[in-house]
Design a protein around this nucleic acid. Sequence first.
RNA 1: GCGAAUGUGGUGAAGAGGCUAACACAACCGGCUGUGAACCGGUCAUUCGUGGGUUCGAGCCCCAUCAUUCGCCCCA
Length: 437
Amino acid sequence: MEINPVKGTHDVVEEEALAYQEIEKIMRSVAEVYGFNEYRTPVLEYSELFSRSVGESSDIVRKEMYTFLDKANRSVTMRPEWTASIVRSIVSNKLYATKDLPIRAYYMGPSFRYERPQAGRYRQFNQFGVELIGEKNPYYDAEIIVLGYSILRFLGFQDITLKINTLGDDVSKSAYQKAIKTYFAKHIDKMCDDCKERLQINPLRILDCKVEEDQKIVRKAPKMSSYLNEESRDYFNKVTTLLDNMEIPFEIDETLVRGLDYYSDLVFEFHYLDKQKKSIGALGAGGHYDKLVSELGGGPLHGVGFAFGEERVYEILRQEKLIPDLQERSDIYVMSISKNELDYAYDIAMRLRFNGYRTICNYSDKTLKSQFKTATKHNAYFAVIVGEEEAKNETFNIKNLATQEQQSAKLKDLQTVVDKLFEEIEIEEREVAEAEE
RNA sequence: GCGAAUGUGGUGAAGAGGCUAACACAACCGGCUGUGAACCGGUCAUUCGUGGGUUCGAGCCCCAUCAUUCGCCCCA
């Protein structure tokens, strides 16, 4: 009986894993350039963490979490996102007291949401994100967006659509919320069931509604911009000015509200639109939060951050053919002519590995012909071939699989011979690379 | 939660009720018994997701079920 992977999960193997390594390397290094340090937090958290941060009214908490009771009847949840965990770890370890503020954290790893899988959406998916926690300052908000934008550019994306909006500070946000609730209450009987529910639990989310009919009503709704107090407006203007200074293109989208309850002031999303101008959803998104740290027991610290969906990034890079051909490349494949030399081949392979060469050794009694095929499949630079003669005299043959040049040498010279051959290859490759430029 | 499409060897797949389930790639063996990408020959699905039904006869039609994929909602 064949066992399938759990619905909504997927295996990432071989070439694809190499591609993810590359993507993560770029994300990591850009974050480090901006002064961020890696945080690794547990997959499991007490469920309360997410109901208090992401919010009881969010879809994530209401229906998408992997929540269960552990053996001591504590309700635990596999993280649906990282921000809450990062903030929790800062509070738990009192890092706000021992580290310089703001704290700059980046993370990468799996998150879990029980949703219907589709293109670019999995139940277990990897997020890469950053959080900058300490104080409210438009420069930080701008830095975070530039950081995210830079990552996408370094990954090879050309046309990124950055949507931004402001929800305003506490005061503005609640004034607007009140206004919009009054407005939609008048039209709600004509709107979809989801909106009826949203009106009760989080009226802002109605702005996000994709239903055509509702959109007409949404378009006539009061605008956030007219409810911003002076402070919030200045703040947002400063952020957009800083983006302009860096020549980061963006669109202000007043319907952008985000489904996580902790955001205030700045919210943003990175999109990539394909030729049909369709998006598989945001590549990444984030925003500013003012109450989250205090809500989780820390001080009155503001934060700002974003997360990318690694699978989405990968998927679009693949579609747009922006992923270089990554394949296994072995240094040396060791083959033996008959079974009698397996010990000798084994010994040589191990010596090569001790010297840091990526080595694969054949232990089957396949023909040399098929061993050469295998070596080619592993994309090896060299084949080491040993037979009865070589084992007896403690020598070996080494053949360059590309040029077909072969030489023999003494076993005691293994390292010097191999080192020299690879030096030559390195020089050649460098020359080729330079010629290409 | 709602809607749609698709399930045939290791892979890509053909197959519109009738002999033994095409073809290609991969794999393995041999031609070449100590040297690879070419070439030639051979081997490789008693079975079409699973269960039931219709029929003289089912991969093909019907029902159920499972799985996958895509879309909506929402999200990264």
